[in-house]
Design a protein around this nucleic acid. Structure first.
Length: 433
RNA sequence: GUGCUUGUAGCUCAAUUGGUUAGAGCGCCGGAUUGUGGUUCCGGAGGUUGCGGGUUCAAUCCCCGUCAGGCACCCCA
């Protein structure tokens, strides 16, 4: 066997597809519970959908090529530009706020690591057309409820929340100019994984965020909890306005009973330039894995991308890290049984009756298998068990003589003679019970 | 793209300082069982030790290259 899957790409044999299907089903349950409607778009897009906004730099992380019509194209690395286009084209006719979600397969060309492949599926939930803080709370609550749907609790997951409006106000007060703001964000974003040598370099060489110093930024990033943030902002001229959205978002989450999940943490800024307000990330409590989910408010992106001026926010949650977490925690569900009922023949003469019964049961919506070759009844029941069948039907000469078959409940180890015409109905009864 | 590290059966792992035919558990297939499953017992298949080269009388083991996984950078949609 020479042709393996490409690095960073996955095969999904049934056992693995079962986990993926389980994750997708939970995602859809929670998203629809919040009134979100599912959409999708093309996996292949024009290259400039991604380069026009982010610059040519990101081409290095894209799966891109020129198609047979000489069009530069790329496999989508994210869903937001596609979403922006779809919303922009229809914005006038859509009732606001728009609640849309999608489960796209996304691609990025970069070296893989645990929890990070070249391809993954990502739940994207976006709420468009609402600027108020209740929308921020709604999106964060949705992300939390997805965790709860998988059986994870506030002790398992940390939701780290920050707000760029408050962060920006504090950084400005320390002397960071508008030009230096993005550099300051990047410094704070990298703070947690920065080596002492790198930190020293930031202290001793001129930085774009001057006159603020590295230690100024560390002090701001070190703020934890709403009270610390509020008192830090209190002395600023526009301080109250800068923290108001964050305060209101937290109050709403508290009213929902979700405040146990939340940590105010100003080291969270997110790498992307386009976030304008609330930003948040979900981690496993032990922080052994990468971020499970990340999102935030991007009020100006639709304007710059699609020409429609609508506030928006959303998050993305990938299936890879989440899958690792569920496996680590023993929350991976048992794969569902393949069949409901196995039909066994006692003698070769019974085979036509097995086929007739099996087909009759399948017509009734029951998942059925039978053996292709003649083997001992015990052997056939062993197969039934291995396939996860709840029921087994055994047909032999004695049964045929009376127009019945033996119906076994493999779970309860009970058996009864049932008229062949009544089998389907009786199977449904037992399966429902 | 850079650095470090690992690579033995489908899976998890063994194999004296380099030494004869590379083993075990689980799983898979078959049998014990010709009208009744889960347990148990017996048997079987499955390996170019990731791949290629080098050193050596001899390489799973040492060296080089390459591919793949893991970790850290880069980046983080």
């Amino acid at each position: 066997m020479t042709a393996k899957a490409l690095p960073g790409f996955r095969d999904f044999p049934p056992h693995d597809l079962a986990l993926r299907a389980y994750i997708f089903a939970a995602w859809r349950r929670v998203a629809t519970r919040y009134g979100f409607e599912e959409y999708d778009g093309p996996p292949l897009e024009p290259l400039d959908l991604y380069t026009s906004k982010s610059g040519d730099e990101i081409v290095g992380q894209l799966y891109n090529f020129v198609d047979k019509g000489d069009r530069p194209v790329a496999l989508r690395p994210e869903m937001t530009p596609t979403l922006a286009r779809m919303v922009a084209e229809r914005a006038n006719g859509l009732k606001k706020p728009i609640r849309w979600f999608s489960i796209p397969q996304l691609f990025r060309y970069e070296r893989q690591q645990r929890g990070r492949l070249r391809e993954h599926f990502q739940l994207n939930c976006d709420l468009i057309g609402e600027a108020g803080a209740l929308a921020d709370a709604e999106i964060i609550a949705l992300a939390i409820d997805v965790m709860r749907e998988f059986g994870l609790g506030a002790k398992d997951i940390r939701v780290r929340v920050s707000d760029r409006r408050a962060l920006t106000a504090l950084l400005q007060a320390r002397g960071v100019t508008a030009d230096g703001m993005y550099a300051a964000y990047q410094f704070i974003d990298k703070l947690e994984r920065m080596s002492p040598a790198d930190l020293e370099r930031h202290r001793t060489t001129p930085q774009p965020y001057a006159p603020a110093t590295a230690d100024d930024l560390i002090a701001v990033a070190g703020l934890r909890g709403l009270s610390q943030v509020e008192s830090a902002v209190a002395m600023l001229p526009d301080g109250a306005a800068a923290v108001a959205p964050l305060t209101e978002t937290l109050a709403a989450l508290d009213a929902m009973g979700l405040s146990d999940w939340i940590e105010i943490d100003f080291t969270i800024v997110r790498g992307l330039a386009y976030y304008t307000g609330t930003v948040f990330e979900l981690f496993d409590a032990g922080k052994t894995l990468r971020a499970i989910c990340g999102g935030g408010r991007y009020d100006t992106l639709l304007q710059s991308l699609g020409g429609v001026d609508l506030p928006a926010l959303g998050f993305g949650m990938g299936d890879v890290v989440l899958g690792e977490l569920l496996k680590d925690r023993g929350l991976r569900p048992e794969p569902p049984s393949a069949i409901d009922c196995f039909v066994a023949a006692v003698t070769p003469e019974d085979q036509p009756h097995v086929l007739r019964i099996a087909h009759q049961l399948r017509d009734a919506g029951i998942r059925v298998e039978y053996a292709f070759g003649q083997t001992a009844v015990g052997k056939q029941l062993k197969i039934a068990d291995a396939r996860g069948a709840r029921l087994a039907v055994v047909v032999g000469p004695d049964d045929r003589a009376t127009g019945t078959a033996q119906l076994k409940d493999l779970q309860g180890s009970t058996q009864e003679a049932v008229a062949i015409d009544a089998l389907a109905a009786r199977c449904h009864e037992l399966l429902a019970g």
